[in-house]
Write a protein that binds this DNA or RNA. Structure first.
Length: 883
RNA sequence: GCCGGGGUGGCGGAAUCGGUAGACGCAGCGGAUUCAAAAUCCGCCGCCGAAAGGCGCGAGGGUUCGAGUCCCUCUCCCGGCACCA
């Protein structure tokens, strides 16, 4: 046993522990069929430059689970990689004239060092970066498989076009309708692009949500809403409307979708979107309509505006035929009809749809009641909540359908329409196919070659990967690949003639849709994944931000199903359990001035003003002592100057303190409010842990017993209750770890130390009890603060074999023998009000407990001489006397 | 508007099956130590009340011996979706 230094030196402690883990390859994961496996994964970071607090929180949660399961005997893998393609690298290139590749690799190097300084149990031998050809080769390979299966296909897409830079802009590069660099008004352009038919999997993606019972309910709901399944009838209004060349527009059919086919006899108009072909046609000789259509197209898409937007429309003067009644129905253009949903047209039933009702009232259209609801009176004056009451409605004024209920009417009407060849029942999805083409340089090249004779030709497998040149420096105008003949020029794989490579790259969501599978099969350069993938996958625990609740997780689920259908993997869902961690917030301080606008202050530039009760009543700037506005808590951001740098935190307090604070301050799913005083408190706790270990090691000098004698030893009151308390806290901590509620695990550790510090240390048996209890504390604490516990564990002489440390020690379990007690204290209630407590022997039956309770002083006082009518005994908890 | 989640001290947050509300920490107050301060240690710390006691988990009602927890009504906050036909 070496003697511990008195003072807790976090820097030295952490360096030593990290060197040990590095030397012993402590985190290397090897497939082992004899052990249960546990694949713990945190969402990999974008290498933006340096870690932020959100990363620290995310990866600490993952690390706690990783270490906990390792000690529980699982074969654990925790890998890490880099989501390395993306726009910020191109922006940095424009600003600094550095190739995105260099910028990215430099950032990876730096951030990797930061992750190591936090002591995460990561198997770095599995590291990957999505910008490396050995990784993105398989993006390309799977894309080609999707092309073969018809899952990937080509169609035109609308993009933002900067006319000055002659380049396509991403949505986030368009600010108020203008290009971010040039300020030029952005145009919409139609260009060809590749799509992935995620809609082919819509049904399975929706249904399998039910199997994800370890995902947060809200994430499953968000995905279900996003997929947006609705059942209804799609049918057509026939018409004779022809364009100037004499051809029927849309083959003479105006298609609409409805979930309320039972109201079809109440149709008094149709409404189409501004982009609909009938609208375009009608606008040709109608300047007023053309202007209205223009207004709709350029209208605000802000959510708040949409919600309050007035329903507006104009008649087209065109008429279509009602498929069942043969009546002529006028077509309107409505600003509330979306071209992107269904067929961009709706039937108008003012009597039974709230929007149609408002529209009809505004323009004086006919309102024809076709559904009657018992107990409700129809009115053409005010909306009567008919729409929501469809289950109780019955058809009226509907000819042969009169008297039919909601579902019977839909069945009858759908089959009549089908017989006419004008439509059928149909599932409608909100989900749309995934456009993956990006007109950007820093991404995975789409493996297509354009030949004048053969058209778009897929790159043959043996020519993969299509390698992206890493030395381009984008300048903001166009894709730099266009200036690279060495990349651009190639031979057509079909005919051999000179051809051009596709310069579009893939959406970076492609890269992140399967990286978790590649971690299982590092180094394989002949296959995307191999049989090892079915050992490690699915991921047992995935941890990341709620902002990825929809797109990333949905795309990954889709990608998994495609890989499954190709026989590459044998699972259908990639992530068994999901934890979405909350954001990290900090105080916001600002001052508004007429000259400079809003000026933000960093928290360290501020003095808080408090009243005598410690309440914050205001804030002043240290600089001038004048007041600033306190804006509560907000997400940490550079522009608001309220970020906390992980490096500074680690330097000042150490990785263990940082990790402990993150775990202790808030439960993992909730937002975490930063507090300088809070991190001080965490540091104080670890200093006490260190000091206790020091005192324990140098003063008590326990003779670690070869065989434990405690189980049979008769302990005195103080030692017995200390031991019981520690084992109870351990039981609680184990329960909380199962719930993934780490804040209370941390607080259990604090309670253990509080109890240990008060314990008597005056006997050999005391030393033994303390040794057992402190050993429990160290192990429970170790997943959260691995460095300090590693050192104390070793210095107290627990390590028996070279290369072992606390991580290879077994997780402690509470001993029943330590929990029993001779006498238990029950809460005493009279008439449901707590009036004190009563001590009873551990084995006492209810009768004896009742008698003891009634006889107690406190009960006698509050019973006021009245007899007990009823006594309720909750074993081990309380006794309640009713008088 | 719809769908989720939530409202507990000055603050972050505990409370497992309906059973002592406020664990643990922060801030605050008092004390010890110190020439002094920092650090450290000890004590107090929901509200009203001198005390006995009463009141307290967004508001109101209900079920129960007993409700932060279950049921109903309302309210506010957060997140998601949204003229979805």
């Amino acid at each position: 046993m070496s003697s511990l230094p008195e003072k807790y030196d976090h820097t030295a402690t952490e360096k030593t522990a990290q060197a040990f883990w590095e030397r012993s390859a402590a985190f290397k994961a090897v497939e082992d069929a004899t052990k249960p496996k546990y694949y713990c994964l945190s969402m990999f970071p974008y290498p933006s430059g340096k870690l932020h607090m959100g990363h620290v929180r995310n990866y600490t949660i993952g690390d706690v689970l990783t270490r906990f399961h390792k000690m529980r005997g699982y074969n654990v893998m925790q890998p890490m990689g880099w989501d390395a393609f993306g726009l910020p690298a191109e922006n940095a290139a424009i600003a600094n004239k550095v190739p995105p590749a260099k910028w990215t690799y430099d950032n990876i190097e730096y951030m990797k060092g930061q992750l190591k300084s936090l002591g995460f149990a990561i198997d770095w031998s599995r590291e990957l970066a999505t910008c490396k050809p050995e990784y993105y080769k398989w993006n390309q390979w799977l894309f080609l498989r999707m092309l073969e299966k018809g899952i990937a296909y080509k169609k035109t897409q609308v993009v933002n076009w900067d006319p000055v830079d002659q380049t396509v802009l991403a949505n986030e590069q368009v600010i108020d309708g203008r290009g971010w660099r040039t300020g030029a008004v952005v145009e919409k352009r139609e260009i060809p692009g590749y799509y992935l038919a995620i809609t082919q999997y819509a049904d399975e993606l929706l249904n399998d949500l039910d199997t994800l019972d370890q995902w947060p309910e809200r994430v499953r709901l968000m995905q279900a809403n996003w997929i947006g399944k609705s059942t209804g009838v799609r049918f057509a209004f026939p018409h004779e409307i022809k364009d100037e060349t004499g051809t029927l527009i849309n083959d003479g059919k105006l298609w609409v979708f409805t979930t309320r086919a039972d109201t079809i006899m109440g149709v008094t108009f149709c409404a189409v979107a501004a982009e609909h072909p009938l609208a375009t046609h009608a606008a040709k000789n109608n300047p007023e309509l053309a202007a209205f259509i223009q207004k709709c197209k350029s209208g605000s898409v802000m959510e708040a505006d949409m919600a309050t937007m007035e329903k507006e429309g104009l008649p087209t003067g065109l008429f279509v035929t009602h498929p069942l009644t043969g009546e002529q129905v006028e077509v309107w253009v409505g600003n509330y009809v979306l071209m992107s949903y269904g067929d961009g047209a709706v039937m108008g039933v003012p009597s039974h749809d709230e929007r149609d009702f408002a529209f009809a009232k505004k323009y004086g259209l006919t309102i024809k009641q076709v559904i009657a609801v018992a107990g409700k009176e129809f009115s053409t004056e005010a909306w009567q909540e008919w729409y929501g009451d469809k289950e109780n409605g019955v058809c009226i004024n509907s000819g042969k359908y009169d008297g039919l209920s909601y579902s019977a009417a839909i069945d009858a009407i759908a089959s009549d329409i089908k017989a006419l060849g004008l439509g059928d029942k149909k599932l409608q999805w909100r989900l749309r196919d995934w456009g993956v083409s990006r007109q950007r340089y820093w991404g995975c090249p789409i493996p297509i070659i354009h030949c004048d004779d053969c058209g778009s030709v897929p790159v043959p497998d043996d020519q993969l990967p299509v390698v992206l040149p890493e030395d381009c420096v984008p300048d903001g105008s166009g894709n730099p690949l266009h200036k690279r003949p060495d990349f651009l020029n190639c031979a057509c794989p079909k005919c051999g003639k000179p051809a051009r490579r596709e310069t579009d790259t893939m959406d970076t969501f492609v890269d992140s849709s399967w990286y978790y599978a590649r971690f299982a099969t590092p180094g394989n350069d002949t296959a995307m994944v191999d049989e090892r993938v079915n050992y490690w996958l699915p991921v047992d625990q995935y941890i990341g931000g709620i902002e990825h609740a929809i797109l990333h997780l949905l795309y990954s689920r889709f990608w998994t199903k495609v890989m499954g259908d190709l026989g590459l993997v044998n699972y259908r869902e990639p992530f068994k359990r999901l934890l979405t961690q909350g954001m990290v917030l900090n105080h916001l301080f600002s001052r508004r001035s007429d000259k400079t606008g809003i000026e933000w202050f960093a928290p360290e530039e501020i003095d808080l003003v408090k009243d005598e009760a410690g309440r914050v009543t205001g804030a002043t700037a240290k600089r001038d002592g004048n007041p600033v506005d306190y804006g509560g808590y907000g997400t940490m951001s550079k522009s608001k100057r309220n970020g906390v740098d992980p490096n500074a935190m680690i330097e000042q307090y150490g990785a263990d303190t940082s990790r402990f604070f993150m775990m202790f301050t808030a439960p993992p799913e909730q937002t975490l409010e930063w507090s300088d005083a809070g991190i001080e408190g965490s540091y104080r706790f670890l200093k006490r842990v260190w000091a206790f270990g020091h005192v324990f090691a140098s003063q008590i000098k326990p003779q670690l017993p070869a065989s434990r004698t405690l189980a049979s030893a008769k302990l005195n009151d103080k030692l017995g209750s200390l031991r019981r308390e520690i084992h109870l806290l351990l039981k609680q901590a184990n329960y909380d770890l199962g719930k993934q509620q780490f804040n209370t695990v941390a607080s259990s550790c604090m309670k253990m130390l509080n109890a240990l510090e008060k314990a008597p240390r005056d006997s050999g048996i005391a030393a033994e009890v303390i040794e057992e209890c402190f050993g429990i504390l160290l192990r429970v604490l170790s997943p959260i603060t691995p460095h300090i516990t590693h050192t104390l564990w070793a210095d107290l002489g627990y390590v028996k074999n070279e290369g072992d440390d606390i991580l290879s020690a077994p997780w402690p379990e509470p001993l029943e023998a330590a929990l029993v007690q001779d006498e238990i204290e029950l809460v005493l209630q009279v008439l449901g009000k707590t009036r004190g407590s009563v001590k009873v022997p551990a084995g006492a039956d209810n009768k004896a407990i009742e008698a003891l309770a009634i006889a107690s002083e406190a009960a006698q006082k509050f019973m006021e001489g009245k007899p007990a009518k009823k006594v309720i005994v909750v074993p081990g908890r309380l006794v309640n006397i009713v008088v």
